[in-house]
C-alpha cells in the first residue's frame, strides 16, 4: 500500500492549474479530495506521473445562486453539500444524497467534483447528476466547455473529461417549488458502497405524480435514468400498487455488474423495489 513515485504540483489559480495539468502530459491526474484516487495509488492500480492538487484553487470553491441554477464549485466537499443553505433550499436531493456517502471523515475530504470526475457508477452523486441534469463546467487550455450530465459519463471510471481538462464546477438546475426528493440507498453496512441506489425527484399535482426524475446508482457502467418508469408514473396516483406496476420496468435498459455483494438478477430486483420506495417516500414527503 505504498504508492509509486510521482511528482506533485499545487497550483493556486485556475489558469495556473490548467497550464500545469496541460504541461504535465497524459499521465497526470487531478487530485481533489483524494478519497478515490489515493487508494488507487496506494494499491498501485494507478501510476500517475504528476498529481495536480487543486485544493488551493479558489475558483473551484464556493456555491453561488445563478438564477435558474446553482453553481457549485468542484472542490465543494460532501460535508458542505449536506450543510450548505443554498443547496439545501434549491437542490435538496444533492444534500440528502451526500449525507449517505461513506462516513463523516470521508465526507469532510471527498468533493462533488472528485466524486463525479471519478465516474464510478457505485458512487452516489453520479445518479443525482443524471437525475437532475446537472451541467459540468470544465476548463482546458483550448476552451471552456459545458457538458450535459447525459454526455459526461462514458463508461466505468471513464468520463468525457480530456486529460488536460479540469472540472471547474456544476450547474445544478433549480427544479422549483412543488418538487420533493428521496435517495434510497441499499448497502450492507453503513460505510459500504451502494449495491443499488435510486435518486428520485417528484413533482406532485392534484394528489398525483405529475412528473418524476429517477437516477439509478450502480445499475450499469454509468449512472442511468429509469426513463420507462419516469414515463409510467407521469400522472399516476400515489398508491403502492400503482407504483409497483410502474416500477416493474425500473431495470429496463440497465446492465448491472456481478460482484461480491450482489448478482445482476438481485440488482435488477433491488432497482425495482428501491425505485418504488424512493418514489413513494418522495411523493409522500
Amino acid at each position: 500500500m505504498i504508492p509509486a513515485r510521482f511528482d506533485y504540483a499545487q497550483p493556486t489559480s485556475l489558469p495556473q492549474a490548467v497550464s500545469v495539468l496541460s504541461d504535465a502530459g497524459e499521465d497526470a491526474k487531478v487530485l481533489a479530495g483524494g478519497q478515490s484516487l489515493l487508494p488507487l495509488l496506494r494499491m498501485r492500480l494507478a501510476y500517475p506521473s504528476v498529481l495536480v492538487d487543486v485544493g488551493c484553487v479558489s475558483e473551484l470553491r464556493g456555491v453561488r445562486d445563478e438564477g435558474d441554477h446553482l453553481f457549485v464549485g468542484a472542490m465543494t466537499t460532501q460535508h458542505d453539500l449536506v450543510r450548505d443553505p443554498l443547496i439545501r433550499e434549491h437542490c435538496p436531493l444533492v444534500s440528502l444524497t451526500a449525507a449517505t456517502v461513506a462516513d463523516p471523515a470521508v465526507r469532510h475530504r471527498g468533493t462533488i467534483g472528485g466524486s463525479l470526475a471519478h465516474a464510478d457508477p457505485a458512487g452516489d452523486l453520479p445518479s443525482v447528476a443524471v437525475a437532475l441534469d446537472m451541467v459540468f463546467v470544465t476548463r482546458s487550455p483550448r476552451e471552456e466547455r459545458r457538458i450535459a450530465a447525459a454526455d459526461f459519463f462514458l463508461d466505468y471510471l471513464e468520463s468525457a473529461l480530456e486529460t488536460d481538462e479540469i472540472l471547474v464546477g456544476l450547474e445544478i438546475p433549480k427544479l422549483g417549488p412543488g418538487w420533493t426528493y428521496h435517495y434510497e440507498k441499499f448497502h450492507r453496512t453503513a460505510q459500504a458502497w451502494a449495491i443499488v441506489g435510486a435518486a428520485v425527484a417528484v413533482r406532485r399535482a392534484d394528489g398525483h405524480i405529475a412528473e418524476a426524475r429517477i437516477g439509478l446508482t450502480n445499475m450499469a457502467p454509468v449512472p442511468v435514468r429509469a426513463s420507462s418508469v419516469e414515463a409510467a408514473v407521469a400522472g399516476a396516483a400515489i398508491d403502492d400498487d400503482v407504483l409497483r406496476r410502474a416500477c416493474a420496468t425500473a431495470d429496463e435498459g440497465t446492465s448491472p455488474a456481478s460482484d461480491l455483494h450482489a448478482t445482476p438478477e438481485y440488482r435488477r430486483h433491488l432497482a425495482r423495489v428501491l425505485t418504488r420506495r424512493a418514489l413513494a417516500t418522495a411523493a409522500r414527503a
Binding site: P39, M43, D103, R188, T189, A190, Q191, A192, W193, L260
Partner: peptide, 28 residues
C-alpha cells in the same frame, strides 16, 4: 451477517480490502 473471505476459482483472495471484506461498525 457480513464477513467472509472469498476466493475465486484460481484461489485468489477477492476480499483484500475492507471495502470487500465488510466488518460491522457502531453504525450497523
Amino acid at each position: 451477517l457480513y464477513e467472509e473471505a472469498v476466493h475465486d476459482a484460481e484461489g485468489n483472495l477477492l476480499t483484500t480490502t475492507l471495502a470487500d471484506y465488510l466488518v460491522p461498525s457502531a453504525a450497523d
